[in-house]
Structures are given as structure tokens and as C-alpha cells.
Design a protein around this nucleic acid. Structure first.
Length: 270
DNA sequence: AACTGCTCCAACCGCCCTAAG
DNA sequence: TCTTAGGGCGGTTGGAGCAGT
């Protein structure tokens, strides 16, 4: 049994919004406020999916949106935040008032990627393009790591292909693939208590202090973040947890603070 | 003018998470 | 504890607009 669709697709409009639809949506939200997107279209007299209404409002109609080109300061802030957060566009957008995750995502894909490449940097890793990849890759588990089956993983979940039949080997491959895909997320969600933070320098005292917030100017765009810190639970080197370090002892990338927590620390610009 | 290729971005899709029952 | 609806998110797509030929 699959999930029921979010709306009756046969009776909804798709594609570009008309001015009339925009006006109806704006007017409805002005009177009733945001919320309950599923029932909104009917109440507002719109032949649209609730999700579509939400997207239209959040990405285009919201009155607090800042339209227009990104400033160089915003460019740099996005780059810095991406180097820390990866493709967490909503988190990045949260640091750029008036910008939406969709807008930033599009801008990243169309402008900033190229900008970084022209600087000789890999847009995903923020490291030099010609450098051998030795950084922490949160999306790939170590090759030799035996990954346990998740509790929620069922055979039914994995044994169907588009043709409807699979061999045992295919099933195993699919399960392994799925586990690999889940690995990075799982590491972050379950085993690591990651505290992302941006600081101003590499010293130990600053490491402690740097669990803090961004150093922001009045406009919230001037950010000093030459280093990235990832903090993990007591007594375990982060690199070991991720499988990049064979022994639990401290590796060269991690430092231990006074609370016994291990931090991964690497310069963003290196 | 017509065609082609490229860029940009609004919108959609499908999955995941979470709160409520 | 389990199920499900609803919201949120990241990845992808499609089409409008523009430049080059």
C-alpha cells in the first residue's frame, strides 16, 4: 500500500502560475495566514496542489523576499556556508535574510559552481581540483567497512526492480548500495553528535570558543570562517568513527578539548 | 528570419521526518 | 508502538529567453 497522493492530480493545474492565481494565494494568506497547505487550495479556490501553493508562496510571493542579484558578500557567504554545511540549502538560506533555499540552490548551480571551478576549487569539497581526495567524505563509507542492516530495512523494501524480479546477488547489491547511501546520513543522525560551528582561528582556546555563532556584521553578511570544526562524542576520534583512521587514537586532523570531546578541524582555504 | 545551443530559474517529484491519533 | 497525514527538503526537469550562426 503506497502513500496517498498529496492532491487529486487529475483536477489540479500545473506549470507556471498566473497573476490571478498569485493574487488569490496572496489574498488568502493575508487573511488566514500560512499553514495547512493541503486544504488551502480548496479554501482559496485554487486548482493547485497544496505543495505547489507552499512553494509558490515561499519562493516567490512572500513579502519579505529580497529580489535581485546576489551581492559579492552574499556570494562569499554562500561559499563559506556550503563548505561547512554542504547542500543543506535551507540551512544556508536561513543565514541569508530574504533569500530562499531554491534561489540559493539555483544560484549555486548556475554561478558559484563555475566561480569555484575558475578558482581551481572543487565545488563539492572546496579543495583544489588537482588535489588527491583525502578529506572526509560524508557520503561514502570506507570500502572495507562491514555495514550492519538497519532495523527498519526489510527484504521487501529491496527485492523489487522495475522488472519485478531480482536475483539474490542483485538483492545483495541493492541492499549494500542502499546501506552505502544511508551511511553518511546515519553517521550524522545516529552516531555523531555533530556540532557545526564557525570560528576565527585554529588555536585551542579559540577552538573552545568557536562552538559559537557566526561573526556577523550588522547586515549579517560579513563572516569570518577560515576553519571548520566538527565535534563528536567523548573519547572517539571523528576520523576513526568515519572509518578514515584505523586506530582510535587522535589523528592529525582531530583535537581534543577540555571536555574530552574530539573535534575535526581543517582549514577551509587549504 | 529561422534555427540551434545554451543559460537560468520556477516548478515539480519523490523521499524523509515528525507529530498526532 | 504503530500508522498515517502533512510539511519540508534536495535533486531534477522543462520551458522561456537570449546569443550566435
Amino acid at each position: 500500500m503506497g502513500r496517498s497522493p498529496c492532491c487529486e492530480k487529475a483536477h489540479t493545474n500545473k506549470g507556471a502560475w498566473t497573476k490571478e492565481e498569485d493574487q488569490r494565494l496572496i489574498e488568502y494568506i493575508r487573511v488566514h495566514g500560512e499553514g495547512c497547505w493541503r486544504s488551502l487550495p480548496k479554501a482559496a479556490g485554487l486548482l493547485r496542489c497544496g505543495k505547489s501553493c507552499r512553494l509558490r508562496w515561499i519562493n516567490y510571493l512572500r513579502p519579505d523576499l529580497k529580489r535581485g542579484n546576489f551581492t559579492p558578500e552574499e556570494d562569499e557567504l554562500i561559499i563559506k556556508l556550503h563548505s561547512l554545511l554542504g547542500n543543506k540549502w535551507s540551512l544556508i538560506a536561513g543565514r541569508l535574510p530574504g533569500r530562499t533555499d531554491n534561489e540559493i540552490k539555483n544560484y549555486w548551480n548556475t554561478h558559484i559552481k563555475r566561480k569555484l571551478i575558475s578558482r581551481g576549487l572543487n565545488p563539492q569539497t572546496h579543495r583544489p581540483l588537482n588535489e588527491n581526495s583525502t578529506h572526509l567524505d560524508f557520503n561514502s563509507p570506507p570500502h572495507d567497512l562491514a555495514l550492519p542492516l538497519r532495523k527498519t530495512e526489510s527484504i521487501e523494501e529491496n527485492n523489487c526492480t522495475s522488472s519485478g524480479t531480482t536475483t539474490d546477488e542483485e538483492q545483495q547489491q541493492q541492499q549494500q548500495q542502499k546501506r552505502k547511501e544511508n551511511y553518511g546520513q546515519e553517521k550524522c543522525n545516529q552516531k555523531l553528535n555533530l556540532e557545526l560551528s564557525i570560528g576565527v582561528g585554529p588555536t585551542q582556546s579559540e577552538l573552545t570558543r568557536a562552538s559559537s555563532n557566526f561573526a556577523e556584521s550588522k547586515q549579517g553578511v560579513e563572516v569570518h570562517c577560515n576553519y571548520q570544526f566538527l565535534e563528536v562524542k567523548q573519547g572517539v576520534c571523528l576520523c576513526w568513527q568515519l572509518g578514515f583512521q584505523r586506530r582510535e587514537e587522535l589523528c592529525r586532523n582531530c583535537t581534543q578539548n577540555s571536555a574530552g570531546l574530539f573535534r575535526y578541524c581543517s582549514p577551509l582555504d587549504s
